[in-house]
Structure formats: structure tokens, C-alpha cells
Design a protein around this nucleic acid. Sequence first.
DNA 1: CCCATGACTAATT
DNA 2: AAATTAGCCATGG
Length: 103
Amino acid sequence: MITKFQRKVYNLVRKIPKGKVTTYKILAKKLKTSARAVGQALKRNPWPKEIPCYKVIKNNGEIGGYSLGVEKKIRLLKREGIKIKKNKIQEISRLMIGDLKFE
DNA sequence: CCCATGACTAATT
DNA sequence: AAATTAGCCATGG
């Protein structure tokens, strides 16, 4: 069962452009909630194929979790040309999407 | 309604 | 630099 809150989160995640990532915190700010609550919603994502929740990472550049396993998440990110070293995203500032880039 | 549980975060040890 | 701690908030029992 999808809650209203989940839908809001997923609608946002769907809009993350290819090759870009964002963070739990940024999404939380957009939805006026906490980063933790965003994580809860993503954890329950019923459509990992359609909703690219692997593009949502921690605020400090670490990878964060994934319902299908962190290794899978890393694989998907690399597939989009995103560099990862020691479980951290490289060149975060270039890849991350703040408040201005998508709605 | 109260309580526990996290794909989190920032500050403090 | 790694580990703790306190704050966070949607969700489910």
C-alpha cells in the first residue's frame, strides 16, 4: 500500500536527471520532512526498476542503503558514469542536485 | 495513543 | 578519524 507521503517522494525521485544524484537531505527539505523519513519511503519502494532510488545518497557523499543490496546500488551508479571510491561518490558537487535543478 | 524502528545527519567525544 | 549521541519523522503494531 502506497501512502501519500511515499508518492511524493517517488514523484521527486523520478525527476532526477540521468547521470546525476541527489541526497536524502535535499529531498527532505523539499518535502519539509526529515532525511530519515525519506529513507523510510525509499526502503519501501515497490518499483525499484521505474523509480531510480539508487540515485539518492547520503549528504556526506557516502552511498547509503538500497533495498536490493548496496553492491547493486553501486553497480547502477557506475553504469551512469558516476565514480565511486571506498564507498564514497567522487566529485559530489558536480553531480549533486540542489534546490534549483529540478522540481 | 504510546512505542519501536530505520536506505539519515550534525555535533561531540 | 572513528565511534557515540541526540534529534529527526513516517509508519506499523
